[in-house]
Every structure is written in structure tokens, then in C-alpha cells.
Simulated scan of single mutants.
Amino acid sequence: MVGPGRPQIVLFGSSIVQYSFTDGGWGASLADIYARTADVILRGYAGWNSRFAVKVLDQVFPKDALLQPSLVIVYFGGNDSTYPHPSGGQGQHVPLSEFTENMRKIGEHLLSLSDKTRVLFLTPPPVNEKHIQALFGDAISGRTNERCRPYAEALLNLSREINVKSIDLWTVIQQEDDWLNTCFTDGIHFTAKASEIVLKEILKVVSEPDWKPSLHWKSLPVEFPFTFGLANYLNLCDQELTRNKHLEPEPGTDRL
């Protein structure tokens, strides 16, 4: 690895994670915010469900790694929630009970990596069913908003049970005005507008005072001095600390 060593924030999930590093994506924006304070590492695998994720846990997150992540943001569930494939095989579908146990295994494995590793689950978001049908026809079938809901609810319940943070994307995105038309590129994946919603919710979580040591981007040390003692140098440190001010939670607002 390159140095100096920084906190690691790992994004682990399916296409909602893999595509988060596209232009305007929530992962790319998160990496930009933490550019001088932490490393944001992408481990996203389009098409995957929680069953695949469990199979690679020890490879992606080995317990004997010299440096363990400070935060792992996990997203699975959208593919799990699809209807079983009409041919008789399950396809991407994972039954709700198995999905819950898979996510429990993921959460408990990540929590065991170190005393300082935090875990944040993202629930399955809603979908625009008409948009999916218009673009894909029968090529993508069985993905509905109502199918996503119980998977989101199960993940929220599990999060409370194993004491990890969670963000209810299924609810928060549907609170956005005209969400059906503004939040999806294809009925499933996020526009820049939806990614901004996800990003702001993540920043609310990392700013919570019960996370000690704090992983909020303003609280982490900025790597290397900006000026090296040069007189009359532009105060880039102040600029760095204020450039993302628009993403800070409004005073008095609470996370869902």
C-alpha cells in the first residue's frame, strides 16, 4: 500500500455501489470529500446478491489484514428482492429469511475485524417500475417497489438487532419531490440527484456524536501541511474545510 496510512472507508455491494463512482455518483462524491483525509475504496459488483457477498467475505475483508477499514458501507437487497426466475431457478432472487441471515453474517464479520470498524447498511431503494418496463421489457422482470419494501424493513430491524447504523433509502428517496422522474437513470440505478440524497444521508450518519473516534470529514486530520510555512500563501486549508459546506445537515434536522 501507499503511505501515509489513512482511515479506510470501503463501499461493498452490487451495482448501486459499483456505479457510485460514475460522474456525479455518491461514491465519487464521497471520495472527493475525503480526498485528503481518508481512502474511499470501491468493492462493487453489479448483478450480485447477498448470497454471492457471503461467499467472498473472507477474501474482500480478511481478518488478518494489517490495516482494517474504519467504515464499511454495505448495500445488497435490490437483486435479492426480485421474483424467482420463471424458468424454475431462483436467478438473482434470495428469499427474505436467507437475505436477513446473509446480512447478519456480513455485519457480524465486519464488526469482528477490529474494535474501530463501523458498519453502515443501506436498504434497497425504491424503483420506477414503468421506467424499467419501458427500457428493458421482459429482460428484467420481477423487480417492483413493493417487493423491495419488506427487504428494506428486514434490514432496518436487523441493524437495530446487531447494533449497526442504517439508512432507509426506500423511504428517504420517496420523500423527494417527483422522485419517480428525477432519481433513476433506468428505473433502478441512481441519477446525480438521487446520489446527492444518499451522500447527504451518509454524512448525517458519520457526523453523529456517538461515533468515537469521529469519522466526520471535518474531524479527521488533513494530510500534510498546505503551506509548509510559506509566507502569504493562499489559505487552502480553510478552503478545503468549507468547499463542501452545502452537503452539511441543516441545523436541527434528524436522520431518519
Rank of each mutant, 00 (worst) to 15 (best):
K55N: 09
P69T: 11
P213A: 04
V10G: 03
G47R: 04
L199H: 02
F226N: 07
G88T: 09
P213I: 05
G27T: 01
C183Y: 01
N49P: 04
F76T: 03
I188D: 00
L67A: 11
S219W: 01
L71E: 01
A46G: 15
K212Y: 13
K245S: 15
E196P: 05
K105R: 14
V72Q: 02
P221R: 09
M1S: 09
P225G: 15
Y34H: 05
D210K: 14
A53N: 01
H246C: 12
E176T: 08
R6D: 07
T22H: 12
W170K: 00
V206I: 15
N145K: 08
S112H: 09
L230D: 10
Q18W: 07
I41A: 05
F136Y: 15
L256C: 05
R143H: 05
P209V: 10
I41P: 02
P249K: 03
E176H: 14
M1H: 12
I197P: 01
S214W: 01
S81D: 06
N79E: 05
T100E: 12
Y34L: 06
D39I: 02
Y19W: 13
F99H: 06
G229M: 07
L96S: 04
F52L: 07
H216Q: 05
T253C: 10
D138T: 13
L169F: 07
D138C: 07
V2A: 14
R255H: 14
V164S: 04
D254Y: 07
G77S: 08
G27E: 01
A231Y: 08
G137D: 08
P86S: 02
S29D: 11
T171G: 04
Q68C: 06
Q90V: 12
F136N: 11
G24W: 00
C237L: 12
L67Q: 14
S29Q: 14
D177I: 11
T227R: 08
F228C: 11
V2F: 14
S207Q: 09
L169G: 01
N181P: 12
A192V: 09
L135A: 08
D80V: 04
E223F: 12
R43A: 04
Y19S: 13
